[in-house]
Structure formats: C-alpha cells, structure tokens
Write a protein that binds this DNA or RNA. Structure first.
Lengths: 210, 210
DNA sequence: ATCTGATGTTGCCCATGGAAACATCGGTGG
DNA sequence: CCACCGATGTTTCCATGGGCAACATCAGAT
C-alpha cells in the first residue's frame, strides 16, 4: 500500500498521524476557547485537545504558548483592520465615517471577543517581541488616524490637535468595548452597536470644528 | 512578661512565628508585585514570600488566590472612590468637576496600577461572587453618575440621556487609562494628566447643552 | 498553668508549560 | 522504486505553582 493511499485512508478514518493544518487549527481553537471562557489564561493542553492533537505538537509551530497567543493577536489585528476599513466605506460624511469606525470597533470586540481579549492582553507586552504584532496593531490604529485626518481636512472636525483627537476617539471606543466585554455596562449585546453609536456621536460633537 | 510585651519583643527581633497583620501585608504585597510586573498573573508563592511567610499561610486569610485578588480590588475601588471625590471638590464649575474626575481616574490608574489592573481583571468576573466587590465598584461608578447629573441639573451638560453621558465619560477615561497603562499611547507618564484633561474636555464639549 | 482556637509551616498532590527522545509521514534523489 | 531525511506528532519527563492536610506555635480564656 502506497503512502498516498495511506493518507487518504487515514483521513477518511480520522486516524491520521499528521494533522495537515495544525497551525491554523490551533489559532482557531485558541480564539474559540478564549471567547467562551472570557479569559486569555487557557491551558495549552486544552487548545491542543480541541485541535485533536497532543499538547507538545503545538511547539512544532509556536516557540511558546505566548507565541500562539501572539499569532491570535496578529490575525485579530488584521481582521480588525479589515472590518474598520469596510465600515468606513459605508458612510459618506467624514464625521459619520468616524462614528461608523467606532461602531465597527465595538462590533468586532463582541463578535471576535477571543481575539480582542488577546490583542489587548498584557501578556503580549511589549508587542515588539513578537514579529509582525507591532505592525499589525499599528495598521489598525492607522485607520483611526486616517479617518480623523480626513474629517479634519474636510472641515468636519477641528484640526488643531489631530493626535489628541485620535487618542480620544480610540480611548473612547476602546473603553466602551472593554467595559461591554466585561459586563460593566448594563447593556445587552443587542444594544451594543446603538450605545456605541451614541457614544461616538457625543465625542464627535466635541471634536467638531467651531 | 505579658503577651503584649512578647509581641513587641518578637516584632523587634523579627523572629516571630505569627505575622500579626498578614492579611493586609498580603494585599499590599500583591498590589506592589502586580504594579511592578504589569501582570495580574502572579505566583501566590511570591506574594507570600514578599510578606515573609510560607505560601500556605495565605489560605488562613483567603479562600483562594483569586479571593486575595478580589480583596485587592475591593480596596482599590474604595481608594478610587475617595480619589474621585477629592478631585471633584477642587473644581467649582460643574463641567470642570467632570473633567477633574477623569483626570483623577487616570492618575489613580497610573499611581495604583497594581490595584487598577486587578480591579478590571477578567479573573474576578462576575463581581457578585466576591462579597463587597460589586458594591465597591458600584460606589466608584456612582461618583460619575452624581457628577454628570449635577452638571446636567446646573445646565452645563445636556440632560436628555444621562445614562448615556455617564457611560461615555466612563468609557472614555477608562479607555484612556487602559491604553496608557499598556503603553499603547505614545505618551510619557508626565503627560498623562494633561492628555487626560484634553480628552475629557473634548467629550465635555460634546456633552454640552446646546 | 493548661487548653483551645487561630495562625503558620512542611509536605504532598495534581495541573500545566516546556524540553527531550522517539515515531511517523511524505517528498526527493540515487 | 525505494531508501533516506526533514517535518510533524507522540510520549515521557521535569519544574513551577495552586491548593489541601497534618503538624507546630502562639495568645488569650478558664
């Protein structure tokens, strides 16, 4: 019996020795597990078990458990960036684009809570110790910077302190997301987008050029 | 020789078997340790060692390591509440009081970063599982509610959605504190209060009655 | 002075992150 | 073709750390 046949047979029977795409499977399993437990402090052994593999197998793809979390974060930031970019497209008015950006940020935090929790977990500090993480994070933040700058250029927001405006917008919506995720706001998930929009609107009013 | 004398003598010689105030010492040690490491995931054994005691001694005062963290959080919320109340006093104008509240929040987060990290650590969720924790947290938030309400009553802020305004104020300054603590804002500690004031001012502008 | 409950200590167990040594697979060059 | 080899997984082992249990020490009450 030839090796290729073995592979097919083993795959069909589910008894294969090599996984085939373990790295992705581990990242996915970690995301899901964290989303369910609400904690980034998950046993690597459990993640491996979810992927149908022994715990030590993870070390063929990640130098450490933290490195696995870092990969979750990198992919999370990439996904967040895409969601933010997509959200910005749907609005025309420059200030409305900033508001939609905030709504998308909160929506991402709730829908991809596993990723979001890891992305801002202190275990990954400093980001520079994991290749690609700092860049991925910076690219997400860059969307905030671009949208604020465009709104200011269009005269919709004051432009005397762009960095300050960016920081305020990020801090506001990040705080909203974090408090929502940790159940500190007495809000159902269904009200999350609405409250996020209201919060962003209030800030945008404050940022408006006078 | 009376017992009280024994205690004094033993304290001076440092060779005492019983600690005398271990509970407080453990809480203090945990705060400091977390502030230094930047992580709430600290070995209980290290905390006990800092308090000069074996690790199992902690279980005479806390049912679990998490319960110790909960006590840190309860005291942290109590301390935060005091700081917020004190800060509110220094300003006269209702909207300025809200701004000072935010500055004090960030200042607390930086100066008591160990406590602050624990207070918002997901390991303590839900707060109701630890006696006193939910109440302590609610009392801190109540300061936000009171200050916003007073500003609205004085006509300094719009009063059509008080809960929304409170949420925005808390989310904004909480996000600012969190991002600062985790080095996501390119700001030195010395600029923290200034940037917090600027951020709060922007939001208050948006909350202002029109 | 002794007894007792509160407080600490030592020793143990078990879960978990990580290293090491071995097993298996799949592609590649003789 | 097939024997080898690098990649990927498994098993086994160790160290760390939370938590329990049994024992030690102390302080106040009787």
């Amino acid at each position: 019996m030839r090796p290729a046949d073995d592979r097919v047979r083993l795959k069909k029977e589910g008894g294969r020795y090599h996984h085939g795409n373990l790295k992705d499977a581990l990242v996915l399993a970690a995301e899901r597990s964290i989303a369910k437990s609400g904690s980034t402090d998950l046993p690597l052994r459990d993640v491996a078990k979810l992927a149908g593999v022994s715990h030590a197998a993870a070390y063929r793809h990640f130098v450490s458990k933290t490195a696995l979390l870092a990969e979750v974060a990198v992919r999370g930031f990439a996904s967040l960036k895409e969601k933010l970019l997509a959200a910005v497209e749907v609005a025309k008015a420059p200030d409305a684009r900033l508001i939609e950006l905030g709504v998308a940020y909160v929506t991402f935090a709730l829908e991809s809570s596993g990723s979001f929790r890891v992305m801002f977990d202190s275990a990954l500090k400093p980001f520079t110790q994991f290749p690609g993480l700092a860049e991925a994070a910076a690219e997400s933040l860059a969307v905030f910077q671009r949208v604020v700058k465009e709104a200011a250029d269009a005269g919709a927001l004051r432009s005397d302190d762009l960095n300050g405006s960016v920081t305020s917008a990020w801090a506001l919506i990040h705080g909203h997301a974090v408090l929502l995720l940790d159940d500190h706001l007495a809000l159902g998930v269904e009200d999350a987008a609405t409250s996020a929009r209201g919060t962003m609107r209030r800030l945008v009013d404050g940022l408006r050029a006078r």
